[in-house]
Design a protein around this nucleic acid. Structure first.
Lengths: 119, 119
DNA sequence: CCTCTATGTTGACGTTCATCAAATCAGGTG
DNA sequence: CACCTGATTTGATGAACGTCAACATAGAGG
């Protein structure tokens, strides 16, 4: 269970440049839109947004799947959504013994915040 | 063609309180997630994200539909996506004579930026 | 090895979505 | 009025999505 997924990370690029300039700076190209939309889409489902918020707000910045059992869907569905968030580059996962811990990928929040113009 | 749509505005509430606290503050409730996910979902399509960026970055903060003809989809599809963005509370539209102008709804950018933590 | 618990994967089903062509609506102009 | 251009709506179609039950995998501990 590594953090390497099929889809390239969107904000946390290899070098330093985040994926895209602020949405207000200039019209997005097709490629930029494709990359950025993948992240917005991942947060565009209520269940996934709750999962992301739950991880992002959890103590020490990480949450175990076992902490998540009350979002209104079955456990396989939770796993499915966590995978989507991982593939979108928003979360990373790590197995420690029995449990699997998820945390927000580095610079995702600042990177996406930048798209929306706030600083 | 008023700006009043079926769905309630997400960020630009009537009073002053934006829809939701930062994603990192505490786990979102089902209702908060439903509201915020609607906006993220609207930006989760590459074509819609290009349209939004095109409007947001256009001079004087508004763009005519006639300015938009090179996003790779047919004109009815453009209209369809603009409607989705309007229903999500991200854009407003106004007809002036022959043409229809779209602009970013007030406080959408700052409101969504707040969700992502970068005030 | 076997068993138990914690996660992830597979397959199926119904729903939603993006897209286009065709029809329709709205405003301007002759 | 008729006609033209800009924009939206309608209807249809194929793809993507969310969900669950059932099955599979992983680690811990007898």
């Amino acid at each position: 269970m590594s953090n390497v997924e099929s889809l390239p990370l969107a904000v946390t690029g290899a070098g330093a440049a985040p994926c895209c300039p602020p949405l207000t700076e200039r019209p997005y190209s097709a490629e930029e839109a494709e990359t950025a939309a993948r992240m917005f889409k991942a947060l565009g489902d209520p269940v996934r947004l709750r999962l992301f918020s739950l991880v992002a707000s959890h103590e020490r910045g990480e949450a175990c799947v076992c902490d998540i059992s009350d979002v209104g869907v079955s456990q396989p569905t939770v796993s499915h959504h966590l995978k989507k968030l991982r593939e979108a580059g928003l979360l990373t996962s790590e197995r420690r013994g029995t449990w699997v811990y998820y945390r927000v990928a580095p610079s995702v929040l600042t990177g996406m915040g930048r798209l929306l113009g706030s600083r």
